[in-house]
């Protein structure tokens, strides 16, 4: 049976997320001091905003304790690639997170994976999408590094996922199922996700202060989402509405390309792979991850949606399964599911 891995950014979310169907939780930490002295773009876990992270290891410890009482595992995210200067901070976070009782690390940097091998009796190593596991040989490579679970990159087809998973029974495989389907390959992408906020007063207002983050969390989901999408279009280069011109040597082919539909913040944010759950189950995927540690998303609603779909596995077949999932999507999000939101499109 596929299990749901949910993001968490606040200790108050533990019970509601587990009640909704989450089997595992994952989170990161940015402390206020770190944020102030190094700025958030130094972030060690690729979520450079305070409200995507827990504020302290003390809170992490309390969160882990609460989750363990419900027999739910917690993974700690350290999924960046680290320079020499950052590595001492990383090692420090590793020790603190282990002391808090976390069950696994989500990593991508081979240096960090090597470091985590020292603690293999106490924590599992999972590699994230940043580790770019596009084939079974790469999966084998990570397994020999002591990795227990592989989170597969977004840009694999269902057939390719099946091929990778069938090669190794000793590894667990996880796929992304909801939200934030990047247009580019996560592990090979070099776009910044937070530079522009420094210059934009509206975005800055909400991003870099814990108190302001609390106000942000009080905003209605629709308004905070609107601000978030505005921010993405202004801030994140992969969602820019680029002007484009084809250059074929000396001939400039005007009026040809429109990239509007390609780098679209809506398809990015609202991506969903729920109707592929059957195929993922068949491919021996053990876990599905709900993406997005940002707080504007209603994580509980997302978990409940996927949990409801998972209950249908084995009961509905093929096209029927998709139709029922589409219905549940419409009931949950009060909008129709759209093909361009598809995480694993069936027609490639």
């Amino acid at each position: 049976m596929i299990k749901i891995v949910s993001p968490i950014t606040n200790i108050s979310e533990v019970d509601p997320l587990i009640d909704a169907g989450a089997s595992e939780l994952y989170c990161g930490v940015i402390t206020g001091q770190e944020n102030k002295s190094l700025t958030s773009i130094y972030c060690l876990n690729r979520r450079p905003s305070l409200f995507s992270n827990l504020p302290s290891f003390k809170e992490l410890e309390a969160l882990v304790k609460k989750a363990k009482m419900r027999k739910v595992k917690v993974s700690f995210t350290l999924n960046e690639f680290y320079t020499e200067d950052q590595f001492e901070n990383v090692k420090d976070q590793v020790k603190k997170a282990i002391d808090c009782g976390i069950d696994a690390f989500i990593a991508a940097d081979l240096g960090l994976i090597k470091e985590l091998q020292k603690y293999k009796d106490r924590v599992e190593i999972h590699v994230g999408v940043g580790a770019t596991t596009f084939n079974a040989d790469t999966a084998g490579f990570y397994q020999r590094m002591g990795v227990r679970r592989i989170i597969l990159p977004r840009q694999l087809t269902l057939d390719e996922i099946g091929e990778i998973c069938s090669k190794d029974e000793n590894l667990e495989f996880e796929c992304l199922i909801l939200n934030e389907r990047c247009h580019f390959i996560d592990g090979y992408c070099n776009f910044l996700h937070s530079a522009f906020s420094y210059q934009n007063p509206l975005l800055n207002l909400f991003k870099y202060d814990r108190f302001r983050s609390k106000i942000w969390q009080l905003l209605p989901a629709a308004i905070s989402k609107m601000i978030h999408v505005y921010g993405m279009k202004k801030e994140i280069a992969c969602c820019f509405n680029y002007k484009a011109e084809i250059n074929a040597g000396t001939a400039l082919l005007k009026n040809r390309p429109s990239l509007d539909n390609f780098f679209n913040a809506d398809t990015f944010l609202n991506a969903c792979g729920a109707c592929s759950l059957q195929a993922l189950d068949k491919a021996q995927i053990s876990f599905v991850k709900i993406v997005g540690r940002v707080s504007f998303k209603n994580k509980v609603k997302d978990v409940a949606f996927i949990a409801r779909c998972l209950k249908l596995l084995g009961k509905e077949n093929g096209a029927d399964f998709c139709h029922v999932v589409e219905d549940i999507y419409r009931q949950t999000y009060k909008t129709y599911c759209c093909k361009s939101y598809c995480y694993y499109p069936k027609e490639q």
Binding site: S37, L38, T39, I41, Y42, E80, F81, Y82, T83, E84, D85, Q86, F87, V90, D109, L110, G111, L112, K114, E115, Y198
Partner: peptide, 22 residues
């Protein structure tokens, strides 16, 4: 506008002692 250590992070490559050993 960035602090020196953050600047350095943006000029460096992601190469740390363990990765070098690897």
């Amino acid at each position: 506008k960035l602090p020196a250590i953050t600047k350095k992070r943006y000029q460096a490559i992601a190469l740390n002692e363990n990765f070098y050993e690897f």
